[in-house]
């Protein structure tokens, strides 16, 4: 479904990505882990087309989209942003159905559709007419999730889905992501440094460090690996190959 080869991206003197190779099959859930500031977000933004890589190739569903062509694919994408990135000026239901607002469907139908998607993420219909600022962080995350899945995308990106949530809420969001992507049959790419997300969401895990994929394998192989980078990351140890001053 998605194949990256030799992706590099440099900001000024800072080489964030130095040749990333990755592949995700259709319907698989890939979780990209790595420390803060290792280029995970840049990678996901390259795939979705928010950032153009300096070199390398991105192939989505057989099409080379490296330097253009994202526009035609965007309707097949959904993305949950780190801080939800809901539009403050619009009520929740317009946020959820934002993509369809100009599709010609009546606003009443769209509102019903939004209520349906909100129900799927565990929110009642009363939330639909509120504004994002009136919601808690956990509820905003759910609304962001509802928006990401509203148009039944084939590929969904999750950027730090549990950032800023307590462990209980994080667990709920993780389970929601897993259930929804499975029932939609969507291909999912998640970036996180939360190991609980990894275990809940991943079929495949890729560890990115120093701008390259250090380790890539099935979730089952993650706990067996003796890769020093992965071990240090999983155990959260201050000593190891990954420097702590980043």
């Amino acid at each position: 479904m998605i194949t990256l080869s030799g992706i590099t991206k440099t900001f000024g003197y800072n080489a964030v990505l130095r040749g990333v190779d990755l592949h995700v099959d259709k319907g698989q859930s890939l979780v990209v882990i790595g420390g803060s500031g290792t280029g995970k977000s840049v990678l996901i933004k390259c795939i979705i087309g928010l950032i153009t890589p300096d070199a390398g190739q991105i192939i989505i569903d057989g099409q080379d989209v490296t330097r253009s062509g994202h526009d035609k694919l965007l309707h097949r994408f959904g993305m949950l942003f780190q801080a939800s990135a809901l539009f403050d000026s619009l009520p929740v239901w317009e946020n959820v159905c934002f993509r369809m607002l100009r599709s010609g469907q009546s606003r009443g139908d769209l509102r019903d559709l939004a209520a349906e998607k909100l129900r799927r993420v565990g929110l009642g219909p009363d939330v639909a007419d509120k504004f994002p600022a009136e919601l808690s962080g956990g509820m905003q995350k759910r609304v962001g999730l509802a928006r990401a899945i509203a148009a039944d995308p084939e590929i969904i990106f999750f950027d730090e889905p549990t950032a800023g949530l307590d462990p209980i809420l994080a667990g709920v969001i993780n389970d929601l992501i897993r259930e929804i992507t499975t029932e939609m049959g969507a291909t999912a790419i998640t970036i996180t440094h939360d190991m609980s997300s990894v275990h809940a969401i991943a079929d495949q895990v890729a560890m990115i460090h120093d701008g390259v994929v250090q380790w890539h394998g099935n979730i089952g192989a993650l706990d067996q690996t003796d890769d020093a980078h992965v071990l240090q990351f999983i155990t959260g140890s201050a000593t190891g190959p990954i420097p702590t001053l980043r």
Binding site: D71, F77, M79, A85, L86, F87, F98, R99, R147
Partner: peptide
Amino acid sequence: EQIDALVTLS
């Protein structure tokens, strides 16, 4: 990231 979100929503 709301601007980025706009782009991802076509």
